[in-house]
Every structure is written in C-alpha cells, then in structure tokens.
Design a binder for these strands. Structure first.
Lengths: 194, 194
DNA sequence: TTTTTTGTTCATTTTTTCTTGAACAAACAG
DNA sequence: CTGTTTGTTCAAGAAAAAATGAACAAAAAA
C-alpha cells in the first residue's frame, strides 16, 4: 500500500544519464551476437528470485523481472527484449525501466549501428537498495520533518494545548531528524559492504 | 503491494507478552480517569503523520492510526477506544493491534478492576522500525538465501550450464548473506541512536 | 445456567495498485 | 514528404491488499 511508485507523469523523459556501452567488463559468455530466446527454467527461477527481492521493497513484480533479466544477462539488452522474453506489456517495460533508471540501478547505453535503446544493470543489487533509499525514502523523511515542524508551530500559536501533545510532537521531531541523518549512513554502509 | 502482513491466521492469540501497567513513567497529563473524547485537529494531524510514517514501511493505514493514537495518549488505552475514536472497525483494530504486538511496538497491560485489555505503546517509533526489520524483513532474507542455495545446487547437478548464470547466482548468494549479517547491525544502530 | 461484555475470525466489499494495450509522439529511413 | 521502427502515455481492466461487519468464542457477571 501507499508507496506511489508511478506518480504524476513527467513532461519529457529527457536524456536520462545516457552512457556508452562497455564501461563494465563484459562477462565472457555474454559476448557475440545477441540471441533472443525464451528463458530456461533456471533463468526463470532467478528472475522470480528478483521479484521476491524487489517485493521486499514493495516494488511491482515487473520491476523485479526487468532487473532480474538484466542481471542474469550481464550485457546490455534492447527494450523489446524485456517485452518478448518476460512476456510483459510495453507499458510495464517502459514504466519499470524508467523507474529503475531513476534509482540508478539501470542505465541506458548506445550500441553502434542499432537505433534501439539498450539497458545495462549495475552488477550489484546494492545499487537498487541504495537508490531506493535515496530516491524514495529520503524525500519522504524530509516531508515528514516539514509536517512535524508545521504542527509544532501551530501548537505554539494555540492556547491551552495539552502539554503532553506538545512534548510528543517535539520528541518525534527530534527522532525524525535523527532518522534523516542516519539514512545516508546506512546507504554508505550498504555500499562499503558489497 | 506484496508485503503480506496478515497471512495464514494463527490458532490462538495466546497471552502475547502481557505485562503490568505502570512500567513506563506516565506523563502528567495522562493521569486521572480515562476520558473518551473525539480527537481534536492537532491530534488527528499527528495520527495522520503516523499513517504516513508506517506507509513508508508499506503498513496499512489502520496500523499507523492505532500506533499514533497510543503514542499521543501516553497511557494505556482499552480496545474499544481505538474503534470509537479512530472510527475503524473492530476487525481492523484487532488485526492492527495483533500486528503491532508481534513487532513489539505495543504491549498488553492489565488495569486493576477493568476486564478489558489495555494497550501501551513503546515511546520510541524506533521499536516499530526495529520490530519490522526483525519480524518481517529478516525472515524473508532467510527465505531468499535458501532459495538461492537450492538453485545453486540444481545448477551444479545440471550439465552444460551457462557459466555466467552460475557465476551470477553465486555472486548473489554471497551478497544476500552479507545483507543478512548486515541487517542486525542496522537494527542495533537504530536503537543506539534513539 | 443464562446473559453480557470483550474481542477474534474470516467471507465479502471497498480501495488501491499494477498491468495492459491502443493512441500517440519522436526519430530515422526510404 | 511518407512510411516504419521504437518507445511513451494514460484510460480502463485485472489483481492484490485492506477494511468491514456479522458470526462466533471466551470469560466474567448475573
């Protein structure tokens, strides 16, 4: 519930951190021409693992599938690959990739001689977690903070306020501020340990 | 989506960590007889804050409301108080309180001369976060680990497996184990800092 | 025992979120 | 230009999660 993943549409998609292919050392078996074939049982199982994993962050299945396919492919994949091999709609693929891009878990790469957009995953799922904390959690902690500050101010301007309420709001405000400071530390630790 | 909060019903509710009232120093304004009155604007705002806050963990609104009411009351409240003052159904109140109890964010207390069950909140929302990590996230990381171990074993028993796939599964397994070790550290830090 | 109070369970309804796919736009090719 | 390829947007349908409330159980009171 709640976490609006795909809220108010943006105007232009813009050139979202586009990069050039080949920055990550390509694993051996992923060289050669790109073959589009259905996923085998083990691959599907791994994709399902990612669906579970992203569900832990309340992300939709399509996001997990997309990231999973990229992860096990270990090479840039074109847009239509997701639609065909995962059996999801163009809409879901588009939305999911856009979302993963905003988290920095996936990036667009250009392949010479091919007009399509290719996508490449960060090798560590850490990036997904860190991106989620930074792009989704952080802003909400900020909003919570603002909200408490506003309430606090209102209470100060009122007369005959229950002192317990005032105390609780203050306590919560302090707590929330600590949580905000704390979050980047967690993200940092996540990066170091992986 | 996804986070199945209220899965397979338990048989008996049992005496879930029942304690005696008064362990926490009661704030001044919360002494005297318990008065049941509707929430005022500020109180409702604070309750809404908690709804937002719990939504960050993808918890249902009712859970946030219940915890919020307890937090701002600073004293044990009887079951029917939640139903009446929050305007939620008995079912939601029951489920929500049960859930908060399993997280250790709320506990049942007995009040002499009153047959009803009273509930008391931990003063720090930290308890809610820590409980969530321990009771909800931790077990799922364990399940993820098992799943990867199984897949790894299957791959070893197969012939002609894409070496990239094997490598990826292994890498993920290592990552997942680190994440599992790491989680208690986060919970610990959360406690220290609040 | 019978009745009342207090709270739980779970089938149903309501609400929210996700996915789909048709219409549309942008960029290139012919 | 005109047609094609590639991808986005968003209204509508499908699916999942949460809330409700009636039926039920347990324990105390009458």
């Amino acid at each position: 519930m709640r976490l609006a993943l795909f809220p108010g549409r943006r105007k232009a998609p813009a050139a979202n951190g586009r990069a050039v292919a080949g920055h990550l050392p390509a694993p051996k078996s992923s060289e050669g021409p790109l073959v589009t074939r259905p996923l085998n049982a083990s691959e599907r199982e791994l994709v399902e693992w990612f669906v579970d994993f992203t569900a832990l962050m309340s992300l939709p299945a399509s996001v997990g599938q997309i990231y999973g396919l990229l992860y096990l492919s270990g090479r840039p994949l074109p847009f239509d690959n997701f639609v065909e091999r995962l059996g999801i709609s163009k809409g879901s693929a588009s939305q999911g990739l856009k979302f993963l891009r905003t988290l920095g878990a996936v990036r667009v790469v250009s392949i010479a001689g091919d007009r399509r957009e290719f996508y490449e995953a960060e090798i560590s799922p850490t990036r997904l977690v860190a991106g989620f904390l930074k792009e989704k959690v952080q802003p909400r902690l900020k909003a919570s903070d603002d909200r408490l500050a506003r309430l606090k101010k209102n209470l100060q301007e009122m007369e005959s306020v229950d002192p317990l309420l005032t105390e609780r709001v203050h306590r919560l405000h302090v707590w929330n501020q600590r949580a905000r400071q704390f979050l980047p530390v967690v993200s940092g630790l996540v990066k170091i340990r992986t």
